[in-house]
């Protein structure tokens, strides 16, 4: 049973490439933070100011990419049974529903996006 995925396995080169990508994306995340809020803010104030409104969105996007790379290649979802991907995806969907709903509901309660929504 164990060998079923061997043929399709990506080789070491692929793994290295992904490691590099992961590292680069992480560096990008930290750099983004540094430019917007950290030490680099003074060095490139214009860049920081223009990126800042999108800080959270960009960070989430970069993290999603990293997540996807690890799940697809290191966890072999790309080469493994579809069922496993569905299993993971379904759990993630429920997880995102829970996180999203709670953030929306609490934001509403605190009047963040519905004036007078405080009751």
């Amino acid at each position: 049973m164990a060998g079923h995925a061997d043929a399709a396995h990506s080789n070491a080169g692929k793994y290295i490439q992904i490691a590099v990508v992961l590292f680069a994306l992480t560096a990008l995340e930290v750099a983004l933070y540094e430019v917007c809020y950290g030490g680099l803010k003074t060095m490139a104030p214009g860049l920081g100011a223009s990126l800042e409104p999108w800080f959270v969105e960009v960070l989430l996007l970069l993290s999603a990419f990293k997540f996807w790379f690890v799940a697809m290649f290191y966890m072999h979802l790309k080469f493994d049974m579809k069922l496993l991907s569905w299993l993971f995806l379904f759990s993630l969907i429920i997880a995102v529903i829970v996180i999203g709903a709670l953030i929306i509901l609490f934001g509403y309660n605190r009047g963040l996006w519905w004036p007078g929504g405080k009751w």
Binding site: A19, F23, K66, F73
Partner: peptide, 8 residues
Amino acid sequence: LFSSFFVV
């Protein structure tokens, strides 16, 4: 992150 690479 690297450890993930190492373990594959």
